[in-house]
Amino acid sequence: MESNKNFVLGIYDDEDVLLKAVTKVRESGVKIHEVYSPFPVHGLDEVLGYKRTRLPIAAFLFGLLGTTLALTMQTWMLGFDWPMIIGGKNFASIPPFVPVTFELTVLLSALGMVGTFMIVSDLKPYKKPRLMDIRITDDKHVMAIDLAKNKLTVDQIKGIIGDSGATEVNDKKFED
């Protein structure tokens, strides 16, 4: 069977039931493709066994880039390229460069991190999402099991999900 096409979906109404269900389903040896929620459920990433996101590191590195660029730009422009006497001050002195350096650090850090987030999460304006269930963005949590990636039969998987507190167990087939 081809992967990423045939799914069994467990629909949950309550986030606390969902958290317990994820642990239980994983313990029964079923591989979960992904869980979809209408709002962020705290602790879901831990029970799913996801590694912590490295986006904070990206933010830090982009921030560092901003600091470096800002300091280099200001020192070069006012200190070397066209030195100007302004109130008899040093050509390139750091204190008056602090505000612009700070602003560019924040700007690059924010834009860089958000850009990284968009790329790694594949969020883009023209993308058509593969929705498991239309109610995900309303009030239902959906646990999706990729049949191709599990050795258990469909009925076994459905049984495990049904026992875990799901209010509905559905099939989902993608054509593309």
């Binding site: 992904e34 869980v35 979809y36 929620s37 209408p38 709002f39 962020p40 459920v41 879901l44 990433d45 799913l48 996801y50 996101t53 986006l55 904070p56 987030f117 968009m118 790694v120 999460s121 594949d122 969020l123 883009k124 304006p125 993308k127 058509k128 999402p129 593969r130 929705l131 498991m132 995900i136 963005t137």
Partner: peptide, 15 residues
């Protein structure tokens, strides 16, 4: 932006 509500995206979103 093609949002589908995946737990992984939510995790990153919160971060």
């Amino acid at each position: 932006f093609g949002w589908d509500g995946a737990a992984k995206t939510w995790m990153r979103y919160e971060s």
